[in-house]
């Protein structure tokens, strides 16, 4: 099971380290939600996407934000349509019970991600992204869904999950999550990948690139992350940069420092960072990595 998950993940281009692979395996085994924490850009969201790919199932994504409420996360009635139905039936003067049954039926229900997730035939992967951005109240509501996998709609009754979704929660740590939520989840902290793993990721995502260049890129970026930066380059930035270098037909990063310096905009995202990584710093890092 463990090896297969690891190889299948790498088959879809996601290279996971041992602890993350074990956590994913355990989450699938125990059918429990998996909470992933880590810096922005280490590939937390990508875990869910890759998992959906290897399980060959739907990915349902709920992006959390401040003020996210039940109407946007679970379900809502289609009021306009309900009103229209009432008006039409009034003009036909049909019996009231009939209308009531009609307007509170599935046809008038707008399903949002969480309700969608529990009503799928095949267990989908449910990604609850950046849960730390949602409010405390919403977090509390989530507890019911995550422990019993059921949703209560007053007009329809309780909807039990037809299949238990594989839930992945991600958090950037902008707010402390409640202990109750943490206890219901398995936990894994995703760190920036080691240079060897990063090289594998580059090769998996950009197979045309030469191994030597991929290796240099991985070591350059890992050196760059040790510099004093405002925003550390994430995995996505590394891949962008690899694409850029490949596109510019650069075969070794110590070849042309001028060009290299220009491409750093792929990695550095603030003005201060761009200024602080001077050509000297670049050539030092490139020299070490090459």
């Amino acid at each position: 099971m463990y090896q297969t998950i690891k190889t299948r993940l790498s088959g879809v281009g996601y290279i996971a380290d041992d602890s993350l692979t074990t956590a994913i395996e355990l989450a699938l085994d125990l059918a429990r939600p998996l909470l992933l924490e880590g810096e922005a850009g280490v590939g937390k969201t990508e875990v869910a996407k890759s998992l959906a790919k290897i399980l060959d199932t739907n990915l349902i994504r709920l992006q959390c934000y401040e003020g996210l409420d039940v109407a946007n996360a679970i379900y809502e009635w289609n009021y306009q349509k309900q009103l229209l139905a009432i008006k039409i039936s009034e003009s036909r003067s049909s019996p009231a019970e009939g209308i009531e049954d009609q307007i509170f039926s599935e046809k008038y229900l707008l399903t949002r991600p969480l309700l969608q997730a529990v009503r799928q035939e095949n267990p989908p992967v449910l990604l609850i992204d950046e849960i730390d951005r949602a409010d405390m109240e919403f977090e509390a509501y989530l507890l019911e869904i995550l422990s019993d996998y059921q949703i209560t709609v007053p007009e329809l009754g309780t909807i039990k999950a037809t299949s238990v979704p594989h839930v992945i929660l991600t958090s950037n740590g902008t707010r402390e999550l409640s202990d109750a939520l943490r206890r219901r989840c398995l936990y894994s902290y995703v760190d920036f990948p080691e240079p060897e793993i990063e090289r594998e990721i580059i090769l998996a995502r950009l197979p045309e690139i030469e191994i030597q260049l991929a290796d240099q890129i991985a070591r350059f970026v890992s050196g760059l992350r040790r510099e004093d930066l405002e925003k550390l380059p994430g995995m996505a930035e590394t891949l962008d940069w690899a694409h850029a270098l490949y596109g510019m037909k650069i075969t070794s990063i110590d070849q042309d420092f001028g060009k290299l310096q220009q491409t750093l905009i792929c990695l550095l995202k603030t003005e201060r960072d761009l200024k602080s990584v001077t050509p000297e710093v670049t050539s030092r890092l490139a020299g070490k990595a090459a």
Partner: peptide
């Protein structure tokens, strides 16, 4: 052993401090 440790780690920890 290494895998057992990782499994218990995923099961028992809940935040970064505990993780480390």
């Amino acid at each position: 052993l290494a895998r057992d440790r990782n499994r218990l780690k995923a099961l028992f920890t809940g935040n970064h401090d505990q993780w480390s």
